[in-house]
Design a protein around this nucleic acid. Structure first.
Length: 137
DNA sequence: GCCAACGTTGGC
DNA sequence: GCCAACGTTGGC
């Protein structure tokens, strides 16, 4: 079981919209970055991820689960781009902001803190635990 | 709205 | 294969 972090601008696709897709989930299409794609290719059904709102909010708002393994992105004919499907699991009781992550020494190694541009990131088990705690779960 | 960081492209 | 130019992302 591995942990991940998915970024989305809420103006484009928000947590509420993701929740609205229910158990069926949503194709995480549109990623055009090799590192992010490779992360998705490494995912297994059942892996968990944080859902992060970039630009607006700049906070982790919920937890999602990978519900379909990596497959060709339906929004392009370019065979390079694959993506997974994810479904909302539960919101955090309290969103954890980027500022919070920067403020906690145990999170200073997070990709989110150090390479904020990567849209699909790995999260360590320790980071996962810490953020769940901060998020009131 | 600005700009730093980063990734990609393409000329050589 | 190098690197300059360019485009995009996302925090501030």
């Amino acid at each position: 079981m591995n942990y991940w972090l998915f970024k989305s601008e809420p103006d484009t696709w928000s947590w509420d919209q993701q929740v609205g897709r229910g158990a069926e989930g949503e194709e995480w299409h549109g990623v055009r970055n090799y590192q992010a794609r490779n992360n998705m290719r490494a995912m297994k059904v059942g892996d968990l991820g944080f859902y992060y709102h970039s630009n607006v909010g700049k906070e982790i708002v919920g937890i999602v689960e990978v519900c379909r393994e990596s497959a060709p992105d339906s929004t392009t004919d370019d065979p390079r781009w694959d993506c997974v499907h994810i479904r909302a699991v539960r919101p955090l009781a309290r969103p954890v902001t980027l500022e919070d992550c920067k403020a906690h020494p145990e999170l200073e190694g997070m990709v989110l803190v150090n390479n904020s541009r990567l849209s699909v990131q790995p999260v360590t088990a320790a980071e996962w635990q810490t953020i769940c705690l901060l998020g009131g779960l």
